[in-house]
Design a protein around this nucleic acid. Structure first.
Length: 465
RNA sequence: GCGGUCGUAGCUCAAUUUGGUUAGAGCACUCCCCUGUCACGGGAGAGGCUGCCGGUUCAAGUCCGGUCGACCGCGCCA
C-alpha cells in the first residue's frame, strides 16, 4: 500500500497520483458520472469518476454512505466554472482511478451531515461512535485535545509537574455520595472512587512536589444536570508557598492565553478578570456564579469573574454547621482567631475563590488550612467527635504535623469550560461517551448485573428487590 | 426522591379544536434514468405492535390509570 495522503494536504499534490483513505460522506450518482465526497479526520474532498474509467464507475456505483474506502486517484485542478470558493478543496477534485472497499456499512441510524443535536439524544448516545463522526462533534473532541495540550504545555513552562493519583481510594463521610468498589481480598471492605484528588494533592505538597497538576477524572454518585455528569474531568492544581493572589494570577494568565491562542475569535469582556465578593454577587445578581456578559446573544463573548469572600460555614437543616465549599480551606487571616476560638462562626470568611464564566462555575479553589490545630477546629465546629476526626482525617492531620508547607490550589471543571468555549448547550456534547441523566451508558449498556461467580468471589450477596 | 415536557416508519415530524375509512410527509433506504453535480435532479418502490401493560367505548395514535425510557429543573452535588 503506498503512502496515504491526508485530505487537507491534497492541494499540494495537484497533477500527481495519490492514495486517500476515509469515509463516504455523500455519493452523487449521475449515471455516466459519479461523485463521491470523501471524509477523513482532516477534511473532505470531492472525488469524481470520469466515464472513460469503466471499471472505476462500476466500483463507484456499488459504494454507499459511510463505507470505508481507500481511493487511488489523480489530483486535478477544477475547471474554473466548477470552483467552489467557500469550502476546503473547493478548487481541486480527485479523479478516481481505483477504489478499494476497506469496509461496508449498513444504513446508519441517523444522518450526520445535519446538526445531530436535533436527533433524540438516546439514539445518539447508543450509537455514539456514529454521532462522533459529525463535523461538530469532531471539533468538540479535537478542540478539547488542543485545550488540554495547551494547559499541559503552559503549566510545564511554569514548573508544574503532572502527577497521577489513585482511583481506588477511601470513602470519606463528608461531601458527595461515593461510587464504591468492593475489595476482594477484604470481605466487607470497599474502595471509593475519588470525588476529587483533593487530599492526595495536598499530601503531594507535604511531599515537596511544590507545583502539581493533573487532568483528573472525578466521580460523584449524584443526580445529573445539563452541566453535571457522574464522572467528569477537572484540571486540578496545587502550589506551595503561595497566597491567594499567586494562585489566581497564574490561573488567570493561563485562561487568557488559552483563549487567545486556541479561540482567537473569542473576546474576553474584561481583563484583568473582575472580582466581587459573594455578598455582592448575591445582592446584585442573586447568584454566586453571575453571568456578566453585556451581550448574551454574542456567542464569542466570554465574561470571566472571580467570586471571593465566601462564608466558611452554613447551617444545615438540622441546625448543625457544615462547610460551604471545602473543609480544607483556610479562613481569611483576620478570621483565623474566630476559628481557633470557635466564635462568630457565621461571620468567618474563607480564602475560597471561584471562577465564573458566562453564568457557569468553571473553577474553585482556596488557600488550605495547613495547621493541624486549625483544621481540627473546623471538624469540631462541624460536630465531628475527636474519634471521627482521628478515624477519617488522621493522615491529613499527621501530615500537617510533619512539615507541610503553606499551600493552595484550584480545580477547574474542564467539561464545563469546553461546553462554554464550544458554545454547546450541555456538558454531554463535549464528553465523548457521556451518560444519560439516569447515569446509564446506552452504548455499553452499563450499569449491568454481574455473574453469581463474580459476586461470590467478592463475598457479596444481594438483597431481593 | 419530587415536579415538568416528550415518546407515531431508520431519522425528523404530521394526523386540528371535538375518539370515526386503509396512520401521512420530508430525509434516509431499494430499483430505474441522467456527462459537471456538490444537501444534484427525475421516476417507481419498500418500510408502522403509534414505547409497554391495562381500562373506558360500537370504535383509541387520540380519553383514563399504571409502567418504562429520554430531556429540563428542584432536592442533592466538600
Amino acid at each position: 500500500m503506498s503512502k496515504r495522503i491526508y485530505i487537507k494536504d491534497l492541494k499540494n499534490f495537484v497533477g500527481q497520483e495519490v492514495l486517500i483513505n476515509g469515509w463516504v460522506d455523500v455519493r452523487r450518482d449521475q449515471g455516466k458520472l459519479v461523485f463521491i465526497d470523501m471524509r477523513d479526520m482532516t477534511g473532505k474532498v470531492q472525488c469524481v469518476v470520469l466515464p472513460n474509467h469503466t471499471e472505476a464507475i462500476e466500483q463507484a456505483k456499488e459504494v454507499r454512505t459511510e463505507w470505508v474506502l481507500s481511493i487511488k486517484g489523480l489530483v486535478n485542478k477544477r475547471p474554473d466554472k466548477n470552483i467552489k470558493e467557500d469550502i476546503l478543496n473547493g478548487d481541486i477534485e480527485l479523479e478516481i482511478l481505483d477504489i478499494e472497499v476497506l469496509n461496508k456499512s449498513e444504513t446508519i441510524p441517523f444522518e450526520i451531515d445535519k446538526d445531530t443535536r436535533n436527533i433524540s439524544e438516546d439514539v445518539r448516545l447508543k450509537y455514539r461512535y456514529v454521532d462522533l463522526r459529525s463535523d461538530r462533534m469532531q471539533k468538540n473532541v479535537r478542540n478539547r485535545h488542543k485545550v488540554i495540550k495547551f494547559i499541559r504545555d503552559f503549566l510545564d513552562k511554569e514548573d508544574f509537574i503532572e502527577i497521577e493519583t489513585p482511583l481506588l481510594t477511601k470513602s470519606t463521610p463528608e461531601g458527595s455520595r461515593d461510587y464504591v468498589v468492593p475489595a476482594r481480598l477484604y470481605p466487607g471492605n470497599f474502595y471509593a472512587l475519588p470525588q476529587s484528588p483533593q487530599q492526595y494533592k495536598q499530601l503531594l505538597m507535604t511531599a515537596g512536589m511544590e507545583k502539581y497538576f493533573q487532568i483528573a477524572r472525578c466521580m460523584r454518585d449524584e443526580d445529573t444536570r445539563g452541566d453535571r455528569q457522574p464522572e467528569f474531568t477537572q484540571l486540578d492544581l496545587e502550589m506551595s508557598f503561595v497566597d491567594k493572589e499567586d494562585v489566581m494570577d497564574v490561573n488567570e494568565k493561563l485562561m487568557i492565553e488559552l483563549v487567545q491562542k486556541i479561540y482567537p475569535e473569542k473576546k474576553i469582556q474584561q481583563i484583568p478578570f473582575p472580582r466581587m465578593t459573594f455578598k455582592e454577587a448575591m445582592e446584585k445578581y442573586n447568584s454566586d456564579k453571575p453571568d456578566l456578559r453585556e451581550n448574551k446573544e454574542d456567542p464569542n463573548l466570554l465574561a470571566f469573574c472571580w467570586v471571593v469572600d465566601f462564608p466558611f460555614f452554613e447551617k444545615t437543616e438540622e441546625g448543625s454547621w457544615t462547610f460551604t465549599h471545602n473543609p480544607f480551606s483556610k479562613p481569611k487571616d483576620e478570621h483565623m482567631e474566630w476559628l481557633l476560638n470557635k466564635e462568630k462562626i457565621e461571620d468567618i470568611l474563607t480564602t475560597q475563590y471561584d471562577l465564573a464564566l458566562n453564568g457557569f462555575e468553571i473553577g474553585g479553589g482556596s488557600i488550605r488550612n495547613h495547621s493541624p490545630e486549625a483544621l481540627e477546629k473546623v471538624f469540631e465546629i462541624m460536630g465531628h467527635k475527636m474519634e471521627n476526626i482521628k478515624k477519617n482525617f488522621d493522615h491529613m492531620l499527621e501530615a500537617f504535623s510533619l512539615g507541610t508547607p503553606p499551600h493552595g490550589g484550584i480545580a477547574w471543571g474542564l467539561d464545563r469550560l469546553m461546553m462554554v468555549l464550544q458554545n454547546e448547550p450541555n456538558i454531554r456534547e463535549v464528553i465523548t461517551f457521556a451518560k444519560t441523566g439516569e447515569g446509564k451508558d446506552l452504548m455499553m449498556n452499563s450499569p449491568a448485573e454481574i455473574s453469581k461467580e463474580q459476586l461470590d468471589e467478592l463475598n457479596i450477596s444481594l438483597n431481593k428487590k
